[in-house]
């Protein structure tokens, strides 16, 4: 059995964490070939070759593959698909954009956000915002799978897989890149951070979010937000933790002024230690918290920032 794994490559840079987690998830399925595709992807391929468990690395460089436009990237994967039983990727927005297109072109179903591998045909995945876990068996000849990164540990490095170049992409002409607006930040990435500090509607305003950010910076943590905080304009959408945002599983998750709606819990309940600070003692967040503190966040958060 052979696996083709689409590595997460953005502007020529490998996202090691997401890719290495998908390698861990794929190991039980067979030999893993990692595909690094992009306008430039050679450096990413070199780095991917060090992931333990990567048997081979393919590199495809072509301007048409830049910015991960779905049409050209999907065509490339389909052209390589013949040799593989599983086509997989970490469940990033890029992979979710590309893989269903690949699946339809191969006339197979998509398996999105898989959180567990039972065997080569059988997978577990959360449905209903993580309120149920479904085990499904695929009858398709090829399986197209995205892996929920929060459910797997990253594979180590130290390997030295061979890197092979494969032919470029066809230019689809269907879409073109215009611009990226990347949030500039020195903080760790939300989905791979060891500690996440999140604020909810209780924080009250965009200015007050500085309290959350200060605590996060003291801890070297990423900043998250509930959907209520994002919808209220207190925080940008790419901070959103939850079913409709990012799914995280850090060692420590600190929820501040977050009530704990089902949709938020779906995005963070796999965190190792959960701390909740909320002035409402009835808030559902306390039911999933390891440590709960009923307090006014405007007093408790600065005090916590001071004492840590």
């Amino acid at each position: 059995m052979a696996v083709l794994l689409l590595a997460e490559v953005n502007n020529g840079v490998l996202s090691m964490d997401a890719t290495a987690k998908a390698v861990t998830a794929s190991k039980a399925l067979g030999d893993v070939t990692v595909l690094c595709a992009g306008a430039s992807a050679a450096d990413a391929a070199k780095e991917a070759a060090t992931i333990d468990g990567a048997a081979k690395v393919l590199v495809a460089e072509d301007p048409a593959l830049g910015h991960r436009l779905a049409e050209s990237t999907a065509d490339l994967i389909v052209s390589l698909a013949g040799d593989y039983d599983h086509i997989v990727a970490p469940a990033t927005t890029d992979a979710k954009n590309v893989l269903p297109r690949v699946a339809a072109l191969l006339d197979v179903m998509m398996l999105t956000d898989v959180s567990g591998v039972v065997d080569a045909d059988t997978f577990e995945r959360p449905i209903y915002a993580g309120n149920a876990i479904q085990t499904v068996k695929s009858g398709d000849a090829k399986k197209v799978v995205s892996f929920r990164t929060a459910s797997f540990d990253a594979a180590g490095t130290g390997g030295s897989a061979a890197v092979e170049t494969v032919g470029g992409a066809s230019v689809s002409g269907l879409s073109e890149w215009v611009e990226d607006k990347v949030a500039e930040s020195d903080r760790p990435e939300l989905t791979s951070a060891g500690i996440v500090v999140s604020g909810g509607r209780g924080v009250g305003s965009e200015d007050n979010f500085a309290l959350i950010e200060k605590l996060a910076d003291k801890l070297g943590a990423a900043v998250g937000a509930s959907r209520a905080a994002v919808d209220s304009g207190f925080a940008p959408n790419d901070w959103q933790v939850g079913q409709t945002g990012k799914v995280v599983a850090p060692d420590l998750y600190i929820a501040v002024g977050i009530s704990g709606a089902i949709q938020h819990l779906a995005g963070m309940k796999d965190s190792k230690i959960i701390v909740a600070i909320n002035k409402d003692e009835e808030a559902p967040i306390f039911q999933v918290a390891d440590y709960g503190l009923v307090a006014d966040l405007f007093e408790a958060v600065p005090e916590l920032t001071d004492k840590l």
Binding site: I274, Q287, A289, Y291, G292
Partner: peptide, 21 residues
């Protein structure tokens, strides 16, 4: 895809309340 089973997610064990920062 054949659904083999659907199960409830693992519940988190109840934690404890702390009285102060």
């Amino acid at each position: 895809l054949t659904v083999v089973k659907t199960s409830a997610p693992a519940e988190r064990a109840a934690g404890e309340m702390v009285g102060s920062v």
